[in-house]
Design a protein around this nucleic acid. Structure first.
Length: 270
DNA sequence: TACCAGGGCCTTT
DNA sequence: AAAGGCCATGGT
């Protein structure tokens, strides 16, 4: 194995959990190495104990762009302390102590979660990969950037058939057209209060509360947005019949990730 | 409110 | 090898 270009000491971070828990779809594990693309940059990363090793990038990119992407500067132990005042949440936090919320690009996050609906992770990855291969730009370092909205806005549903997204193709095109026209303004959404931002995203066909909240949490780092799917609804009903404790609400999205991962890995409990 | 909309991965036989 | 279930959902 070649020498890493940068090693970073991490806490409360577990690469396998972060990249495998269903918040991102452009990472592949190859032996100990995870290879991925974000915003047209590619990188390889591995982790041994608390050391994160970066390859195929520069020390500057690792310290800057990728540290931000992996949200390494946020103190998750403080959040876990708050959540752990609830005994069941303590168990969930303890079960997967290395969860982080990635800081992904909003447009890509919106598209990938449109594609995620009524779908499973392996197939979502395939759809995203074909979308990038067919319509993404290649830069000089090789990786395929996620297709820009202008590109997708020009397409007809027929032209998207090679992606094999099914009924989701029309949703993707609607999203692209509304972003290009400014009817959905992602920069403005970044500045909106969460409920207003959710409503704005839901102007897109195929974007309901769940997809909107995933976009806000994973693409805009809105830690108060709380994506509710069948698993979370079941788990919350069992664990918090009165609803989430109010002190957790500003960080409900982070709490959601611990609960979701715990529920998925203990299906017999819910 | 219930049902339907691609398609393929994964488990079971 | 073949079959069927299942899918972090939303529109009609």
């Amino acid at each position: 194995m070649k020498q890493s270009v940068k090693q970073i000491l991490v806490r409360d971070f577990e690469l396998d959990t972060v990249l495998g828990c269903g918040q991102c779809f452009r990472w592949e594990k190859d032996g100990p190495l995870w290879r991925g693309v974000a915003q047209g940059r590619h990188v390889s990363v591995s982790q041994e104990c608390n050391i994160l090793s970066f390859y195929d990038t520069t020390p500057q990119e690792a310290e800057g762009f990728w540290s931000d992407y992996f949200d390494l500067q946020t103190d998750y132990s403080a959040m876990k302390r708050l959540f752990s005042e609830h005994p069941v949440m303590a168990q969930a936090c303890n079960f997967a102590p290395g969860i982080h919320i990635l800081r992904q690009e909003p447009w890509e996050t919106l598209c990938t979660f449109i594609l995620s609906q009524n779908n499973n992770i392996p197939r979502i990855k395939g759809l995203v990969q074909r979308l990038c291969e067919q319509f993404g730009d290649v830069n000089e370092s090789g990786p395929l950037a996620f297709p820009v909205p202008e590109k997708l806005a020009r397409l007809s549903p027929e032209e998207l058939t090679p992606v094999r997204a099914g009924f989701r193709a029309a949703y993707l095109i609607d999203a692209a057209r509304k972003v290009v026209s400014g009817e959905v303004d992602l920069a403005a959404i970044a500045a909106m209060e969460t409920n207003e931002a959710r409503q704005a995203l839901m102007k897109i066909k195929g974007v309901g509360p769940k997809v909107a909240d995933c976009t806000l949490l994973f693409g805009f780092h809105r830690l108060d947005s709380f994506p509710q799917d069948v698993w979370i609804k079941r788990a919350v009903a069992a664990l918090f019949p009165e609803g989430l404790p109010p002190e957790m609400l500003p960080l409900a999205g982070v709490a959601q990730q611990y609960i979701f991962h715990y529920a998925r890995c203990h299906p017999e409990l819910f």
